[in-house]
Design a protein around this nucleic acid. Structure first.
Lengths: 237, 237
DNA sequence: CCCAATTTGTTCGTATGTATA
DNA sequence: TTATACATACGAACAAATTGG
């Protein structure tokens, strides 16, 4: 294995273990190079890959930081519903339900966990421009979110992913999504104020942290009459 | 502007202008560095960015090449419908229609071009596991696809994007997509053999080449009863 | 099968530029 | 202004992969 990859691994371990917390500043490149016993060029190559993966952020004149959630930009990366005319806005979120339960067969399959696993189930309504647009159902493995309470969830200052990170040390690094068209069931129709049976976009997302460990499973049901689900694809990795 | 960016621009211009064709081999790094009058490190930095953008491909011991379409991987990058159980397969494609027409108001808006622009309109049916799963309607600016005929389109050996590249020198570098749930209209329902009115996933894609110039507009209508639309999201750029 | 030439990959180190506090 | 940090540019040396003889 190349030396710079070994350095990258050690940095990644420090981040995953929490000894380098999100938002914290790394030692300077010169110091890190000395610590690891490599040249500054090699150190920069290791850091460069972590920057490319959005795990670190470099700022000229200031330093290198462990990336954290919460920026506007990041929000839109994981929530990219916008009005058909292209207007983007942060969603307004209402907590409709919060309960502790256990994974049933179907959810366990989709989540990649075992049936019976204790989970926290959360239900949200999202509004854009004041109008209800989406319904979310979240499942969180209870074992990872010790001390999570409805009050805490309700009173969080920033985004959900930021809450995971700040309160539970969980950093979402990637998410897999699967989309399909469904008809609105009575439950969702009532919550969003639409007629049952109309077509809705259903997005099932599994969010993972380092090592592809699942940390959140979410089913979003989106009313796409006035809004659309957007993304950009680039050439393969 | 940093020197390596100037070098990158010159390389990019050579690719866009066609003097470096897709699939061709670049001169060695040492030669390029001499040609551009920069150090090999600076040359490598310029090439490195183009590699990161998937415009060039480096192979140790062999050389550096201008990337081309056509790999299986690339296909899946832009066509990512798979069976609900996760099975992935290349789609079987049937050409249903091929005609020359002009952009109407609505399509022009979505495509980012002027109404009345001459276009080639193509209609396809896609099958997976032998069953009709999606309907595509493509619009191509006729000005960019001179000499395109139905016979040529029908007899292409590889993917559509590869055809664009080989026959018309058009390299698709990125695509923007907007998804929504709709009800199947009579036309699409008949083609896919489903009941009119059932929910379908509609994906509208604009494919662009260098400089964000649109080169294809496509509306896919996907039957998501047995199949799903999949993707992976990573942290922000 | 091995060798030699070629090409990219990795590592090193130094010097200078630019942004920030 | 000064100090510190990352950014850019240079170039040398060796490693690893590939190709052809």
């Amino acid at each position: 294995m190349p030396l710079y990859r070994a350095v990258k691994r050690r940095l990644l371990q420090a981040i995953e273990s929490g000894s380098l917390a999100p938002g914290s500043t790394l030692p300077s490149e010169r110091e890190l190079a000395t610590m690891f016993g490599v040249s500054i060029g090699t150190l920069r190559q290791a850091v460069g890959e972590l920057v490319a993966e959005h795990i670190l952020v470099r700022r000229q004149g200031r330093g290198t930081f462990v990336a954290r959630h919460g920026s506007e930009r990041f929000l839109f990366q994981f929530f990219h519903v916008e009005r058909a005319d292209g207007l983007r806005e942060a969603p307004e979120l209402e907590l409709l339900g919060f309960e502790r339960t256990r994974l049933d067969e179907a959810d366990a399959e989709a989540f990649g966990l075992k049936p019976g696993e204790p989970v926290i189930a959360i239900e949200n309504r999202l509004r854009l421009q004041g109008r209800p647009v989406a319904h979310d159902r979240l499942l969180l493995p209870a074992a990872l979110y010790k001390g999570m309470t409805e009050a805490r969830f309700r009173s969080r200052p920033a985004t959900i992913y930021r809450l995971y990170q700040d309160e539970h040390g969980i950093t979402v690094v990637r998410a897999h999504e699967r989309a399909r068209a469904v008809t609105a069931d009575r439950h969702v129709a009532r919550i969003l104020g639409v007629a049952p049976g109309i077509p809705m976009l259903q997005v099932r997302r599994t969010a993972v942290t380092f090592g592809d460990r699942p940390v959140e499973y979410r089913v979003s049901t989106i009313h796409t009459a006035q809004h659309e689900y957007v993304q950009t694809l680039s050439r393969p990795r």
